[in-house]
Computed example of a mutant assay.
Amino acid sequence: MSDTPNASATPPPLSVAASLVGVEGLGAVGVAIGAISDVRSGQWATAASIAAFFALCAAGLFVAGWALWRRHGWARGPALITQLLMLGIAFGTGIPVAAAIVVAAVAVISVAGIVHPDSIRALSGEAD
């Protein structure tokens, strides 16, 4: 087994999960931009803090998505934890129902892709 796994051998369920984690990263970038663009008088520090937090979250999601795509086993934990947090956001924060359904669907599909037997084999190095 090489140090850098072959991305072309990434099983389809893991590819879907990795892609959706990347999409969540784009969503976090959107929230960061929204926080900056919705600054009210005297709220720069709060907006900058929120934007920085979500920018860091986006970076983490991009790294985790890339690592899943490249079949690095360490990425499974952060990706799964993120999906559990996304389910909490979907059902516990009062976001609009349509948005909650989309967020929950992305999280459930991502979890299914990450825990699929082919994905587990690929992330553990057994698929080589």
Rank of each mutant, 00 (worst) to 15 (best):
A59I: 12
A45C: 09
S110P: 08
A100V: 06
V102Q: 05
G77C: 09
A90K: 10
P5F: 11
T93Y: 01
I81Q: 11
N6S: 11
A64G: 11
G77Q: 13
V108C: 02
A79I: 06
H116W: 04
C57Q: 14
R121A: 15
P13M: 02
V102G: 06
T4E: 09
G88V: 07
S15A: 15
D38H: 12
F91W: 15
L87R: 10
S8N: 10
A18I: 03
R70N: 10
V103T: 08
A99Y: 03
I33H: 01
A32M: 05
P12Q: 06
A64K: 06
I101Q: 03
V23W: 01
A107D: 05
D38Y: 06
A75Q: 00
E24G: 11
V39D: 04
A48R: 09
G30D: 01
G30M: 07
L61P: 00
T46G: 06
G30A: 01
A90G: 10
G34F: 01
P78A: 10
A90W: 10
V102R: 05
G113A: 09
M1W: 13
A7C: 06
G77K: 12
S19Y: 13
I109N: 04
G25N: 05
V63E: 00
V29L: 11
I50P: 05
N6C: 09
A98H: 08
I109R: 10
R121L: 10
W66G: 13
L84W: 12
I95N: 04
I95W: 02
I50R: 10
S41I: 11
S2V: 14
A99K: 04
G77D: 11
F53S: 11
G60A: 11
L56C: 10
L20F: 07
A104I: 07
S124W: 05
V103N: 02
L84E: 07
A98F: 11
G27T: 03
A127T: 12
G65A: 04
S8P: 00
A127H: 14
V97S: 12
P96I: 08
P96Y: 08
I33S: 03
C57M: 15
W66R: 15
T82F: 14
A105Y: 01
A104N: 05
R70F: 03
A99S: 14
A122V: 05
A127P: 04
I120Y: 00
V63S: 03
F53G: 07
H72C: 06
A47L: 02
L84A: 15
T10Y: 00
L26R: 09
A59F: 11
A45W: 13
W74N: 07
F53A: 14
V31D: 02
A35W: 00
P12S: 09
D38T: 14
G92I: 05
R71G: 04
I33P: 00
R71S: 08
G22S: 09
A35T: 02
A18Y: 01
I120M: 04
V29D: 08
A104C: 04
V16R: 07
G34A: 07
F62N: 02
A9K: 09
I109Y: 02
I50A: 13
S37Y: 06
M1H: 13
A122G: 07
L85Y: 12
S49W: 10
S19I: 08
L26I: 08
D118Q: 14
V103K: 04
V39H: 00
R121S: 10
F62L: 12
F62M: 10
G34D: 05
W69Y: 14
L84N: 08
A112C: 13
V106E: 00
D118R: 13
Q43F: 08
D38V: 08
V16Y: 01
A45F: 14
T82M: 09
